[in-house]
Design a protein around this nucleic acid. Structure first.
Length: 492
RNA sequence: GGCCCCAUCGUCUAGCGGUUAGGACACCGGCCUCUCACGUCGGUAACACGGGUUCAAUUCCCGUUGGGGUCACCA
C-alpha cells in the first residue's frame, strides 16, 4: 500500500468507481439482494466504473456451491453482468472469500502486531455462560465482551479468536450518500471478533480486507448493514487505509411491515423468472423502489443508468407491492420500445415449449405477438394467450361451448366461414370488411356472430380481436375451426 | 431494553418556506368496444401529534408517538 500515490496509474485509479455486490451463497438470490446489486451496478455503469462480484462464503455451515450457481444465473438473467468476479476473473482475485484466507491471516497478524487487535482465549462456552448469567440478572441488558483477554500477555497453546481492540474514547462519523451525517460513539461498540478460532474471518473483517484489497471506492448495501459501518471504518483506520464512501439503501419490507420472506409470496429472482417477468421490468420496479426521478415510473435500463443518482434516494423503508410490480411488468411487455418483438419472442418461447405445443417457431410467434401485447401481463400469461395459435384443435372451455356453440349459432358459423373463404387478401382489415358487408346484407349484427366465432377459433370467450385472430390463424385453420364448431353446435 | 435509522394518499413517490399538496399502482364511475384487454375522461384518498423558529411551515429545530434495523466465533 505504501507508495501507492507515487505510481503513475494512481491518479487514474483513484478516479475510477469500483463498487461490489457481495452475496453469501446460502440459498436463492433474494429480491432485496437484487436491488442492492442493481444500485451498485447502476453506479458502476453511470460512472463508467467497475462492478465487482464477490462471494462471501465464510459461513461454511450454510454456504453451498449450488447457491453460487443460482446467484450467478440470476444475475446473468437480469443482465447485471459483473466486470470482475467468478468466471470472468480480474486483477483483484480470487473473488471467493474462502480462497483469500491467507490475506485475512496476514492482515489479522498485522493488527495484532500493531496492538490494534489481540488474541482472545475465552471459549464459546465461557462466553455463553456469561451471557446467560447477565440475562438472569437483567433480562433487558445486552451482553458486551468484558475484555477478559484484552491485556493478556501469555500465548497459551489453545484455540483463540482474534478480537479488535476498541478504542477507549472517541467516535466514528461518516457522511452517508443517502442518510447524510452519521455518528456513533466508540463506547457503544465492543471488542468484536475478527477471526474465528478456526482461522476463518467474520463478516466485518473479511469484507473490509476485501474492500481494501479490491480497491472498492463505494459500498452500497441495505440499511440492515448500517450498524456494521462504524466498526468497519475503525478497521480501515487500524489498517491505515482511507475508508470508501458508504450508501445505505432503505429496506424493502413485506406489505405487513415485516421482513420480506417466502411467507409473503415470491421473493427470489428465479421465481419471478419462472412467473414470466421481464428482466428489465424487474430492474425498473426495483430501481423505483427507494429512488425516484420526478414523476417517471417506466424506464428503459439505459434511462435508469442515465438518471440514477444518490441524491434522489429515499431514506424511509418501503413495502414491496406485487400489484405495482406486475403493472410495471405489463408496461414493459406492452411497449415495443421497452421489449422488442425479437426479445419478446426469445422470452416467451420457453414458456410455449413448456406447454408442449405444435409448430412453435420464432417467425410464427413473432407474427402473433402484436395481438396479445397489450393484454399479456407476463410471459407466462402471454404463452397462455398464444396457446390456441399453436394447438389444434384449441382447448375448448366447456362453459364457453355450452353457451355459444349451440344450435342457434351453427348457421352463423357456417355462413361466416363461407364469407371468409372468399375474402382477399387474408388480412385483418380485409376480413373485417368482408364480414361487415355480409352482416349488413344479412341484417345481422357483429355481436351475434363474434362470440360464437371466438369460441370456435380460440376455445374461449376472451381473446384478441376477432379479425386479428382469424388473420393470424390463417385461412385453412380458421375455416376448419369454424366449420368444426358449426358441426358440433348442430349436434347440440 | 441499549444503540442507530425513519415518518406525504392503502402502496411506491414528487415536493427541497408561500402549491387548489402533483404522478403512478390499487380501488370506484363514464366513454370506447366483437369478448378480454388497451386507451381515455373523472372520482375517493395523504403531509402522525405537540411545541418552537419565521411575515409564512408538508418543508427548518426539539420532543412525543409510531415503525424499522441491530445487539453472534451469521452475513
Amino acid at each position: 500500500m505504501a507508495g501507492r500515490g507515487l505510481r503513475p496509474s494512481a491518479t487514474h485509479r483513484a478516479m475510477t468507481t469500483r463498487v461490489r455486490f457481495a452475496p453469501s451463497p446460502t440459498g436463492y438470490l433474494h429480491i432485496g439482494g437484487v436491488r442492492t446489486a442493481l444500485f451498485n451496478w447502476l453506479w458502476a455503469r453511470k460512472t463508467r466504473g467497475v462492478f465487482v462480484l464477490r462471494i462471501e462464503d465464510t459461513d461454511q455451515e450454510r454456504s453451498t456451491a449450488e447457491s453460487v450457481r443460482v446467484i450467478l444465473d440470476a444475475l446473468k438473467w437480469l443482465g447485471l453482468e459483473w466486470d470482475e468476479g467468478p468466471e470472468v476473473g480480474g486483477a483483484h482475485g480470487p473473488y471467493t472469500q474462502m480462497e483469500r484466507r491467507a490475506l485475512y491471516r496476514e492482515h489479522a497478524e498485522r493488527l495484532i502486531r500493531d496492538g490494534k487487535a489481540y488474541r482472545c482465549y475465552c471459549t464459546r462456552e465461557e462466553l455463553e455462560a456469561q451471557r446467560a448469567a447477565l440475562k438472569a440478572r437483567d433480562p433487558k441488558a445486552s451482553f458486551r465482551y468484558p475484555g477478559t483477554c484484552r491485556d493478556r500477555k501469555d500465548e497459551p497453546d489453545l484455540p483463540y479468536v482474534v478480537r479488535f481492540r476498541m478504542p477507549e474514547g472517541g467516535s466514528v462519523s461518516y457522511v452517508d450518500k443517502v442518510f447524510g451525517a452519521v455518528a456513533t460513539p466508540n463506547a457503544a461498540q465492543q471488542d468484536f471478533v475478527l477471526v474465528r478460532s478456526d482461522g476463518v474471518p467474520l463478516y466485518n473483517f473479511g469484507a473490509v480486507v476485501d474492500d481494501i484489497t479490491m480497491e472498492i471506492t463505494l459500498v452500497a448495501r441495505g440499511r440492515d448493514h448500517m450498524i456494521n459501518t462504524p466498526p468497519q471504518i475503525l478497521l480501515y483506520e487500524a489498517l491505515g487505509c482511507p475508508p470508501p464512501a458508504f450508501a445505505h439503501l432503505p429496506m424493502m419490507l413485506a406489505q405487513t411491515g415485516e421482513k420480506l420472506s417466502k411467507r409473503h409470496g415470491a421473493v427470489s429472482a428465479a421465481e419471478y423468472r419462472a412467473q414470466g417477468y421481464a428482466p428489465h421490468a424487474v430492474l425498473n420496479y426495483l430501481a423505483r423502489f427507494g429512488w425516484s426521478h420526478g414523476d417517471q415510473e417506466v424506464f428503459s435500463l439505459d434511462e435508469i443508468v442515465q438518471a440514477f443518482d444518490w441524491e434522489h434516494c429515499n431514506k424511509s423503508d418501503g413495502k414491496f407491492d406485487p400489484k405495482k410490480f406486475l403493472a410495471i411488468n405489463h408496461e414493459h411487455l406492452k411497449s415495443p420500445r421497452l421489449t422488442s418483438d425479437d426479445v419478446y419472442v426469445a422470452q416467451v418461447v420457453p414458456f410455449l415449449y413448456a406447454r408442449s405445443l405444435e409448430g412453435v417457431e420464432p417467425g410464427r410467434v413473432k407474427e402473433a405477438i402484436p395481438m396479445i401485447r397489450e393484454r399479456a401481463t407476463t410471459f407466462v400469461d402471454a404463452a397462455d394467450r398464444l396457446d390456441f395459435v399453436f394447438r389444434d384443435p384449441p382447448l375448448l372451455d366447456a362453459a364457453a361451448a355450452a353457451k355459444f356453440l349451440v344450435k342457434a349459432n351453427a348457421g352463423h358459423l357456417r355462413d361466416l366461414a363461407t364469407v371468409l373463404e372468399k375474402a382477399d387478401p387474408w388480412t385483418a382489415p380485409a376480413l373485417e370488411a368482408a364480414t361487415h358487408a355480409w352482416l349488413a346484407a344479412a341484417g345481422r349484427q357483429i355481436k351475434d356472430v363474434a362470440q360464437p366465432a371466438r369460441v370456435a377459433l380460440t376455445g374461449r370467450t376472451a381473446s384478441p380481436g376477432l379479425f386479428d385472430v382469424i388473420a393470424t390463424l390463417g385461412k385453412t385453420r380458421s375455416l376448419a375451426r369454424l366449420r368444426a364448431a358449426a358441426e358440433s353446435a348442430e349436434r347440440g
